[in-house]
């Protein structure tokens, strides 16, 4: 078994999502190679240091710069002649590229795997995480995306893989990158944060959301999350959304404030180690999964909590 992992990166830095994907790849057994498509030399050097990586393939063609799937997928498909499996993180990049690779290889992708049970057997969540399916692939080559919160990060240091330049890559002429409107944030990244403070519809408006959530998040060095209701109501931008249709997180501490706990939200956070919920409705479903629940008005309880921590 030889495994090709797509490196997740932007702005010249490797994303931690790559580390968890490498762990999943190692569990398949055999050599793990990492493909850095479109990244800088620095990204390739970072990837080479990951423990457990045998080789880094660096494709620097200009057409790969923004990792457009129309250009990346053909490159991966060419390389796959020498590999048994292709893994990408279940991020917006991985989910965009991997199915395109799978279709070109004529294999069915296994999406969002949570564990490796055997050489071709995996578990994955279905129905918004309300059921866990154990599935077995019968395809000759595996193409999978990896739920990064379900795997430990591989050590970012300790490896010393060789870096090989790959010449492939060309503009397929099917797409062009116009621009990225990045959300600026000095906080830890949501999917890798140790603590997340998350707000829901009960926060009333954007100003209240900011006023109540930010000081608590600052105090805890936490990332800020939100329910879909809060995002749809415009309290915060949608890349903070936690849930089936947003980000899947599993921090050590998840604090849900004014979030009722709809199944689509729970799908994104119920693997957190400790869940705290503050809500004034004692019957809301979030209390069914919270380790510590407090029935209280968030407008008084949150400032008090911020002060006492």
């Amino acid at each position: 078994m030889s495994v090709l992992v797509l490196a997740e990166h932007n702005d010249g830095a490797l994303s931690p999502a790559t580390l968890a994907t490498v762990t999943a790849a190692s569990q398949l057994g055999g050599d793990v190679h990492v493909l850095v498509a479109g990244g800088s030399d620095g990204v390739a050097a970072e990837a080479a240091k990951i423990a457990g990586v045998a080789m880094v393939l660096h494709a620097g063609d200009a057409s790969l710069a923004n990792q457009l799937p129309e250009n990346v997928a053909p490159l991966v498909v060419d390389l796959m002649a020498g590999y048994d499996a292709f893994l990408a993180a279940s991020t917006s990049t991985g989910k965009n590229v991997a199915p395109r690779v799978a279709a070109l290889l004529d294999v069915m992708q296994v999406s969002d795997i949570m564990s490796v049970e055997g050489p071709k057997t995996f578990t994955r969540p279905i129905y918004a995480g309300n059921a866990i399916a154990t599935v077995e692939s019968s395809d000759a080559k595996l193409v999978m995306t990896v739920r990064t919160t379900a795997f430990e990060n591989a050590a970012a240091d300790g490896g010393s893989a060789a870096i090989e330049a790959v010449s492939g890559g060309a503009d397929a002429g099917l797409s062009s990158f116009v621009g990225l409107e990045a959300t600026k944030s000095e906080r830890p990244e949501l999917t890798s944060a140790r603590v997340i403070v998350s707000g829901g519809r009960a926060l009333k408006d954007a100003a209240t959301f900011e006023q109540l959530i930010t000081p608590l998040a600052d105090k805890l060095g936490a990332a800020i999350g939100a329910s879909r209701a809060a995002v749809d109501a415009g309290y915060i931008s949608n890349d903070h959304q936690v849930g089936q249709t947003g980000k899947i997180v599993a921090p050590e501490l998840y604090i849900a404030l004014g979030i009722s706990g709809a199944i689509q939200h729970l799908a994104g956070m119920k693997d957190s180690k400790v869940i705290v919920a503050i809500n004034k409705d004692p019957d809301c479903p979030i209390f069914q999964i919270a380790d510590y629940g407090l029935v209280a008005d968030i407008f008084t309880a949150v400032p008090e909590l911020t002060e006492k921590l």
Partner: peptide, 19 residues
């Protein structure tokens, strides 16, 4: 191409406490 061997409930979180 993919056979579902089993579908199970996700692990149940232990009921927490109210403070």
């Amino acid at each position: 191409r993919i056979t579902t061997l089993k579908v199970a409930e996700p692990p149940v979180r232990q009921k927490g406490e109210m403070v």
